[in-house]
């Protein structure tokens, strides 16, 4: 049995949350807060000098997606355990967090004991994701996507076909004879309607569709 403490780094842009979490967790026996960060850049710097067992990472930072930060953290250190903290659960965030390698996905709630338990479990190497919930979320997103495709016009379909191929906005613009700005607007409108946060997710979904669906 090791007596080493569980090292934690907190990344949250909300100062009150960051500070109170840091104070609270540093007083929990067996825990040690190694540092805090208010954005992804600071977090990555911190990870170069510290070796935390756990990173607690907010899903939605000002001007920055916690999911993008999650991916850079995992790129920096593929074995880094990251627990995502969120105020609102959403299917797309759940699926994205899972696929991007988060260890757990926690709601910010008054049940702090749950957070402590999750931190301990993740530190032991567990990945407390409910695979049933993830699968359900995937299913719901896919249904939304399939229903949406039925209602789209030819231009939007062409844009999606290009998205599935991973084309750039410039390339799509040339294919559908629209300006790049218009294509950008249309793409973000489509992503929103698909209920997904990034085009990679949509591209993966589209690429998996049977031929001729689009």
């Amino acid at each position: 049995m090791t007596t080493e403490k569980i090292g934690i780094v907190i990344c949250d842009d909300h100062e009150l949350v960051r500070e109170s979490l840091s104070l609270y967790l540093s007083e929990v026996p067996g825990f040690e807060v190694l540092g805090t960060a208010h954005n992804g850049e600071v977090l990555l710097e911190l990870l170069k000098s510290t070796r935390p067992d756990i990173v607690l990472l907010d899903v939605q930072l000002v001007d920055e997606s916690g999911l993008d930060i999650l991916r850079s953290v995992r790129e920096f250190n593929a074995s880094q355990a990251v627990i995502m903290l969120t105020t609102f659960k959403s299917d797309s965030v759940l699926v994205d967090a899972y696929e991007s390698g988060a260890a757990a996905y926690l709601l910010k709630s008054a049940h702090l004991d749950e957070m402590l338990l999750t931190i301990r479990n993740v530190a032991k190497g567990e990945r407390p994701f409910d695979s049933g919930e993830v699968l359900h979320a995937m299913k719901r997103l896919d249904e939304t996507g399939l229903n949406l495709i039925k209602t789209l016009d030819e231009t939007d379909r062409s844009i999606l076909r290009e998205l599935a191929k991973g084309s750039s906005d410039q390339h799509i613009a040339a294919v559908v004879f629209l300006s790049v700005q218009t294509v950008r607007n249309r793409v973000s409108r489509l992503l929103r309607r698909f209920g997904r946060d990034n085009r990679t997710q949509v591209a993966v979904f589209l690429a998996a569709l049977p031929e001729g669906t689009l």
Binding site: E27, T87, K108, A110
Partner: peptide, 24 residues
């Protein structure tokens, strides 16, 4: 509405943690 509520929830969340901390 989500953004507004988000910051409200964050503040209450922080207050909860503060209380939880002082309880011990």
């Amino acid at each position: 509405s989500r953004d507004l509520h988000d910051s409200v929830i964050q503040q209450i969340y922080a207050a909860t943690i503060g209380l939880k901390r002082s309880i011990s």
